[in-house]
């Protein structure tokens, strides 16, 4: 289908609808996330892309015009971030004693298909906040990629920058976060 439609009226209308939706989105997304997490109490997982896509379809904002979709995705990424951090904190609060809260990152497309990556999600979020104070665009880029599960191309489109810029930003953001995480040790 692609960009067959250029309906300014529709874009405006949808944008208005999207802007009006945040609380609703958040609520829906939380519900979706919870249902996804509930599927396996033992090792609960959240797959960012699947979650966002599911929400997108369910909320029927199925518009081939990129602009409003991109806008939607951007808000979605923010919401995802909150949901994940909330969840991590909640889980952390439930545990007591010497058990440490860990988060494993499983990138399904890892070069070796492996899944060993143990990081502290809350620390990452804090580092990201720090980064946001200095450089809003870097924070948004990372947020879209990491929490929103957008591809490089989609991120570039949403932010209105080129793909090489996205890659460069990701690198810088990662370096920053690593530097922050390193300090805490």
């Amino acid at each position: 289908m692609g960009k067959d439609v250029d309906d300014d009226d529709i874009t405006d209308q949808l944008n208005a609808e999207v802007a009006a939706m945040p609380t609703e989105i958040y609520a829906s997304l939380r519900r979706l996330a919870q249902s996804q997490l509930a599927r396996d109490r033992a090792a609960p997982t959240l797959n960012a892309t699947a979650l966002v896509n599911e929400a997108y379809l369910k909320l029927s904002v199925n518009d081939p015009n990129w602009d409003s979709r991109g806008h939607f995705m951007a808000s979605m990424a923010k919401v995802m971030r909150h949901v994940m951090i909330d969840y991590a904190r909640e889980r952390g609060a439930q545990r007591r004693g010497g058990d440490q809260q860990q988060v494993t990152l499983e990138g399904l497309d890892h070069a070796d298909g492996n899944l060993i990556e143990v990081v502290d999600l809350i620390a990452i979020d804090q580092a990201l906040c720090q980064l946001g104070l200095l450089d809003k665009r870097l924070e948004r880029t990372l947020e879209l990629r990491f929490f929103g599960g957008l591809s490089i191309e989609e991120t570039a489109k949403t932010l209105g920058i080129s793909e090489p810029t996205v890659k460069r930003d990701m690198r810088t953001a990662r370096a920053f976060i690593n530097a922050q995480l390193g300090q805490e040790q």
């Binding site: 090792a43 997982t45 960012a48 809260q101 860990q102 494993t104 399904l108 995480l181």
Partner: peptide, 18 residues
């Protein structure tokens, strides 16, 4: 510490206990 490809792709978060 934070591998490039892990951060750059849609992660799946598994919350576990050590």
């Amino acid at each position: 510490k934070l591998r490039e490809d892990a951060l750059a792709q849609a992660p799946k978060l598994t919350l576990e206990l050590t």
